[in-house]
Structures are given as structure tokens and as C-alpha cells.
Amino acid sequence: MGLLEAIIISVIAASTPLLLAAAGELVVERSGVLNLGTEGMMIMGAACGFAGAYLTGSTFVGALFGIAAGAALSLVFAALTLGLAVNQVAAGLALTILGIGLSGLIGAGFVGERITPAPRLYIPLLTDLPIVGKILFGQDGFVYFSIALVATIWWFLYRTRAGLVLRAVGDSHTSAHALGYPVLKIRLLAVLFGGGCAGLGGAFLPLAYTPFFIPGMTAGRGWIALALVVFSSWMPGRLVAGAYLFGAVTILQLHAQAFGLGIPSQLMSALPYLATVIVLVLISRARGSAGSVAPASLGIVFVPDR
């Protein structure tokens, strides 16, 4: 296995959890809800996903545990922001803090344990092809699923009536309500979907990336996923590009450190975050002339009058 091949494979692995979590958040934000609790839902997904896989010995069951944990935590968020009309930013931040704490508690008994990492696809001949074989046909299920997920989300948003209604709710909840659409119900479903995706993104870490659980192992990936949604200007296609760009910067700085360039390693580790900030600034500057593309009702609490 050549160096290039190894780098690409590790880039994909670094990008996949970001893509999973960001894809869910994109749907949530398209419905007009800003859930800043992605980091909390991811780490809960990691802890519960590892617990599930360790107890049953199945990566698949672990992934389901991760999805359920993320969705369950997002239900708390939905109850607060949709049911009680609490400020979404505050509720999202609280959710992250809750998730980090709770996952530490749940995962405490599993620290130091190991599991078998998720199996990788192997198709005779195809996977054995030089260079592209391992990259295209030798990944684990999470990777293929994440790409399929984004494609499905694109199809859903732009090609189905339900997707149109979701975008409409995010654009103007008052208009949607006046036309008789159940705004809160649609948002609840979106939030649960986003929670499940974040949970799965988190579960990817102990199930496929490293075969063990450590508290706080999401290490800010939830926040990067949130930034990616803005970076993508709420468009699924750009989300893939953004996630892989970020994954690439993360991996390349590791390799650069290994080469010993004489740059402090802390600075190198900060590079991905720095890159995100720079890209976000560039994007919002470039967009200045075209107007904002954020869903117009994003983050605004809706209380129907009846």
C-alpha cells in the first residue's frame, strides 16, 4: 500500500463522521431549527454505540445504539425548543454539555475495552485493483452509507413534495402554518433525524475509526459539522466537498508533523480549525452580493396561534 493510498483512505475515515453529522444538521436547519447540540449528540452516539457493539459483538447493533442515543438526546432538545418554545441556541449549548457529561458516565465502564472494528468491504478482483481498489471498494459500511445518505437527502429536498414542505417550513413558518402545514411536527421529525445522524457519526469513531472508547473522543467534531452546514450554504452537494476538504486538512497536518517541518505541533493541530474559519469568512464575503441563503426562519421560535 502506497503512501498516497494510505493518505486517501485515512482522509475518508476522518471525513465520514463529519459528513454523517453535518448531513443530519443540514436537514434540521433546512426546517428552520438551529440545533447546536451536535457535539453532545455525537459523543452520546459514540458511548452508546460502543456499549452496544461491546455487549452484543455486532457493529451493526452498535450503530443502531448510536443512532438511538443521538435521536433520544435530540428529543430532549425538541421538547424544549418545539414544545416549550425555549431559545434554540441556549437549548443546543445545554444539550452539548449534557451529552458530554452523560456519555462520560455511560462510557466509564467501557474505557480500556476493545472491540473488533467494523468489517471492510471485500470484492474479489475489484478490491484488489491497484490504488483505486481499496479506496472505492474496500471501505466499511459507514462510508458508503454516508454518501448514500447525502444523495438521498438531496433527492428528498429537491425532488419530493415532503422535501418542498420541509424547505417551506424553514423559509417561513408563519406562511406554512397559514397554509395548514403542521410546522412543529415537521420540525420534530427533522430534529429526530438530525439527532440520529449525529449519533451515527459519533458511533463511527469507536466502531470504525479506533476500536475503543475514550471520553470526549469526538474532540470538537460536532462543532466542525455545524460549521460545515454553513460552509455548504445548506446544499447537500457542497457538504460532501466541505467534509472531505476538512478531513484532508486534518490528515495532512498529521503527515506534515511526521515529516518534522519544525513547526510546533500545536499549531499544526490547529490548522483544520484555522482552515474552517478562513473558508467560512471567504464564503460569506463572496456571498455578500448574492444575499443570504440561510433558511429565513432559522433559529426563530414558532408558537402557533389557535
Partner: peptide, 17 residues
């Protein structure tokens, strides 16, 4: 107060109604 969606097209707005 129009029940329209600014970022959607005319046809999409009509479809939603």
C-alpha cells in the same frame, strides 16, 4: 400578510397551496 415563501419559486409556492 402574504403566505408566501421568499426563497422558493412561484411554481413551488403555488404547489404548497
Amino acid at each position: 400578510h402574504f403566505s408566501l415563501f421568499d426563497n422558493l419559486t412561484v411554481a413551488e409556492n403555488v404547489a404548497l397551496g
